[in-house]
Amino acid sequence: MMSQSTSSAPTTRDGCSVALYLRLPYRGEVELISPWLPAAASVLELGCGVGRMTRNLLARGYHVTAVDNSPDILAHVSTEASKVCANIEDLDLGEEFDAVILASCLINIPDDGLRALQLAKCRTHLQSGSPLLFERHDPAWLSAVTVGYLGDIGTVEIYVDEAARKDAEVQLCVRYQEDEHSWSHRFTVRILDDEAVQEVLSRAGFAAPRWINQRWGAAIACDHAA
């Protein structure tokens, strides 16, 4: 997603604060998606961040290749994972995995062409019949979000300071507060309802998604000849 951080501390290439990422707790994503992962599966984790999911995937015995385009971020990822610094759309590892994870609502980026390229890379790196596990913003939430207190993640309070919608795009400024520390993050996302998600996945070579909950879904890679 297009984004910009107002923090002066180190940030990722898309403007997210590394210091903020390090403060946010793990939220149980691996337990949520693990029914879709075979035992000892090879997992390609795209946009791994500081490795909160990576650590828990490794702890469950999965073999993880963790990808992010920020070297500052990758420095915090466990050395037990294979780490790759690259943009998703440029990735070419020359191998197929048992599963691909596309978290952090990256599917909601507003650039349709870039989304298509990234989903194509997901398909390229998946064995036929294997799952893409993806996270998206709840479309109902994006359609109704207003300025104000949003909630807590661990010890970090979250506030929406600005929210503007134009057609299917939403521009947000989200502030994260922990004691005297504050980070503001501006970003733009595209609302994707179930039908829109199915359409973009189908174009990339995936079957219709099965929803795990309102944010997480799984889509099986179709045969390349299909």
Rank of each mutant, 00 (worst) to 15 (best):
M1V: 08
Q4I: 00
S5H: 07
S7N: 13
P10W: 02
P10C: 10
T11G: 14
R13V: 13
D14C: 06
S17C: 13
V18G: 11
A19H: 12
L24T: 15
L24K: 15
Y26C: 10
V30Q: 08
I33A: 10
P35N: 07
V43E: 04
L46G: 01
G47H: 00
G49L: 09
V50H: 10
V50Q: 10
G51T: 06
M53P: 01
M53E: 15
L58C: 09
A59I: 02
A59C: 03
R60L: 13
Y62T: 07
H63E: 12
T65L: 08
T65Q: 01
D68V: 10
N69Q: 11
S70C: 11
P71N: 06
I73W: 09
A75E: 13
A75Y: 08
A75N: 09
H76N: 13
V77L: 08
E80T: 02
A81E: 04
V84N: 04
N87G: 09
E89W: 00
E89V: 01
D90V: 00
L93I: 05
E95M: 09
E95L: 07
D98T: 01
A99P: 03
V100N: 06
I101A: 01
L102G: 09
S104Q: 06
I107Y: 04
I107K: 12
N108T: 03
I109E: 10
L114P: 00
R115L: 10
Q118M: 15
L119W: 05
H125G: 05
L126Y: 05
Q127E: 10
G129I: 03
S130F: 03
S130I: 01
S130W: 01
F134A: 05
E135F: 00
R136H: 06
R136A: 14
H137T: 03
A140Y: 07
W141A: 11
W141G: 04
V147S: 04
V147Y: 08
G148H: 09
L150K: 12
G154L: 13
G154K: 15
G154Q: 14
T155M: 14
T155H: 15
V156R: 07
I158F: 04
Y159H: 15
V160H: 12
E162K: 09
A163H: 11
K166F: 08
D167Q: 14
V170A: 07
L172S: 04
D179E: 14
W183E: 11
R186E: 14
F187V: 02
T188A: 11
L192N: 06
D194A: 14
A196N: 04
Q198V: 01
E199T: 11
L201Q: 08
A204R: 08
F206Y: 05
F206T: 03
A207I: 04
A207R: 03
P209G: 06
P209E: 10
R210A: 15
I212K: 08
I212N: 11
Q214S: 14
R215D: 10
A218R: 11
A218C: 12
H224D: 14
